[in-house]
C-alpha cells in the first residue's frame, strides 16, 4: 500500500490553473524530490497534499498506515509573524503537539525529544532566545527542529536549505538522509539537482503539468523532457 496517492489532480487559484493531471505515489521509505522552475506549482502541490488548498480535480489519499498528524512539514515561507513573542524552545516543542489527542501537556519524553533536535540542528544554545530576534538561517533551523520533533512517517520539506550556510546545508542533507534511512518517507522540493541526484529514490519534475515521474535512474539516464515534448508534438 502506498503512503500517499495522488490521482489525476489539478490545482488552480481562482481560475488560473497551476497544475493539471498529475498522478504519482509515495511508498514507505521513498525519497521523492520535486524539481521544476519557479512558479511551476511545487509548493502548491505540497499545500494540496497537506489539505491547505483544495484540489480542482482528482483525489489525494493517505494510506491506512499514515494519519495526518504523522506528517512533519517545513513550509517554504515562514508563516510565523515577525513580532511574535515566542522562545525557541516553545517553538520547537510545539512540533510534539500533533500526536497529542486532547489535552496538550508535554511529557518528559517530549522535552527530551525537542532538546535532542535542537542539539542536532545546532540551536540548543539559542533555547531561551526570542524566535523573532534570530537571523533568517537560525529561524530556518528552528523550524526544521520543530518539524523533526514530530513523530513522523512522512517528512515534507519545501526548499529546506534556503538561508543555510554551506556547512549547515550539507549537514541538513545528511540528517534528512538519516531520517529517511530510519524508515520515514521524504518529499523534498528543491532546486538543487545535485542533491536530488545524490539522495532521491524518485523524481517528480513539474512544469504546470507533470513532465516526469519515475525513479531517479530513469530520470538521470536521459531524455525525459524531450520525449515528453515529442509526445506533445506528435
Amino acid at each position: 500500500m502506498a503512503l500517499l496517492t495522488c490521482q489525476n489532480i489539478s490545482l488552480a487559484y481562482e481560475r488560473h490553473t497551476v497544475l493539471s493531471e498529475l498522478s504519482f505515489q509515495v511508498h514507505a521509505g521513498n525519497y521523492l524530490c520535486i524539481i521544476g522552475e519557479n512558479g511551476s506549482g511545487k509548493s502548491s502541490l505540497i499545500k494540496a497534499i497537506l489539505g491547505l488548498i483544495p484540489t480542482v480535480n482528482g483525489t489525494i489519499s493517505l494510506g491506512e498506515e499514515l494519519s495526518k498528524h504523522e506528517i512533519a512539514y517545513l513550509p517554504q515561507q515562514n508563516a510565523a509573524q515577525k513580532d511574535f513573542p515566542a522562545s525557541v524552545y516553545e517553538v520547537v516543542l510545539s512540533g510534539r503537539l500533533s500526536s497529542k489527542r486532547f489535552f496538550s501537556f508535554y511529557s518528559r519524553k517530549d522535552k527530551q525529544e525537542a532538546e535532542a533536535n535542537m542539539e542536532r540542528l545546532g540551536v540548543l544554545s539559542l533555547k531561551d532566545k526570542s524566535f523573532r530576534e534570530l537571523s533568517g538561517g537560525q529561524q530556518q533551523r528552528v523550524l526544521l527542529a520543530r518539524a523533526f520533533s514530530t513523530d513522523m512517517k512522512l517528512l515534507i520539506v519545501d526548499e529546506p536549505t534556503v538561508g543555510l550556510d554551506a556547512y549547515a546545508t550539507a549537514e541538513l542533507y545528511r540528517m534528512i538522509a538519516e531520517i529517511n534511512a530510519s524508515g520515514v518517507a521524504v518529499i523534498m522540493v528543491t532546486h538543487d539537482v545535485e542533491a536530488a541526484k545524490k539522495y532521491a529514490t524518485h523524481i517528480l519534475y513539474l512544469q504546470n503539468k507533470p513532465l516526469f515521474f519515475g525513479s531517479k535512474k530513469d530520470y538521470f539516464s536521459g531524455n525525459h523532457g524531450e520525449s515528453e515534448e515529442n509526445r506533445d508534438n506528435a
Binding site: H69, I71, A80, S94
Partner: peptide, 9 residues
C-alpha cells in the same frame, strides 16, 4: 504562532 502548521498536521 502558526495556524498553517497546525492545520497541516
Amino acid at each position: 504562532f502558526d495556524e498553517t502548521y497546525v492545520k497541516a498536521g
